[in-house]
Nucleic acid binder design. Structure first.
Lengths: 130, 130
DNA sequence: TGTATAGGTCTCATTTAGAGACCGTTGCTG
DNA sequence: CAGCAACGGTCTCTAAATGAGACCTATACA
C-alpha cells in the first residue's frame, strides 16, 4: 500500500515511518526476534558461554542461538570473547549499550509479568466466541 | 536443546522459561511482530479506521493489517467497532489495557530514538571487518 | 578405543510473512 | 445508466524465516 508525501489521516511525512529510517522499527526488528530478549535477560545475570545459554533455553536450536548472538554482537549489544582453552570456550556478555537497553525494557517486562493474565483472559474470551 | 528440571548454569526451573508459561515470551511474541507497535503508536493519536491505518503505513499489505489488528483485538489491546454506514466502516481504538501497554513501552521507544545511531555505528563497524 | 565436550556449520522440512487479485455493496460521475 | 472508486476485508501463491538434527575439528578422560 504505497503512499508518498504527507499522510492525510495523520499528517506525518512518510519518511517518519519509512522502514529504513524509523529507529523504532529498526530496533524492534531486532529486539522483537523470538529469542533476543530471552538471551539478553539471561546475560543480565552475568557473562555466559554458548552452551550454557543453550542449556538454559529449553527449545532453542544451535542454529538460532548462533544467529541471535551474532545479530546482537553486530548491533553492539553483546560482546563475544574467545578463550584459548582446549577446546576453546566463548563467552558472551552484555555491553554497556546492552545493559542500557535492558534498563529501558524494564517497564515493558514488568508490564508483561503483571498484565499477562488480563491478556490471557481476553484471549480465552475471544476464542470462546465464534 | 531440551533440558528438564533445574538449569545448572542459572538455577532456574525450566518452567520459568517454558514458552507456554513465560509471560515475557508470550507478550513479546505479539508485541515483537513487525507491525504491532507501529499500529499501536498510530492508535495513540486516537481511534482510526482500517484504511486510514493502511494508508499511514506505507508498506503493509491488507492481509497483514487485518491479521495484526485481529491479534491485537484478541489480546484485548485494541477494540473493533463496526458502524452501519454504507459501505460499513470499522473503527479501531486502543483499549485501556492497550494504553497501559504503550505507557510501559515508553522507555523502550525513547531508547530506540536516542540510541539507534549507536546501534547503526556498531553495525557499520561490524560489517566493515570481515 | 570409544565417548564426551567445546562451539559452531550445513542441509532440508516446516512455518510464517508478504504481494496482489478478487469480492459484494454502495455512491458519485459522466 | 455505465463505469469507476471506496469501504473492509478474504484467498491464493510465492518468498523468506525458523527449526531439527546430522556433521565437524580438536582434546581429554575412561
Amino acid at each position: 500500500m504505497p503512499d508518498t508525501a504527507i499522510d492525510p489521516d495523520f499528517g506525518f511525512t512518510s519518511d517518519e515511518l519509512d522502514p529504513e529510517k524509523c529507529p523504532v522499527r529498526q530496533v524492534l526488528a531486532q529486539v522483537g526476534g523470538k529469542w533476543t530478549v530471552l538471551i539478553l535477560e539471561l546475560l543480565q545475570h552475568g557473562p555466559r558461554r554458548f552452551n550454557a545459554l543453550g542449556r538454559a533455553i529449553p527449545d532453542i536450536s544451535k542454529r538460532m542461538l548462533t544467529q541471535t548472538l551474532r545479530d546482537l554482537e553486530r548491533d553492539g549489544l553483546v560482546s563475544r570473547e574467545v578463550f584459548p582453552t582446549k577446546p576453546p570456550s566463548v563467552q558472551y556478555a552484555l555491553t554497556p549499550l546492552g545493559v542500557d537497553l535492558m534498563k529501558a525494557m524494564g517497564g515493558l517486562l514488568d508490564w508483561a509479568w503483571t498484565n499477562f493474565d488480563k491478556v490471557k483472559t481476553a484471549r480465552d474470551v475471544y476464542d470462546a466466541t465464534p
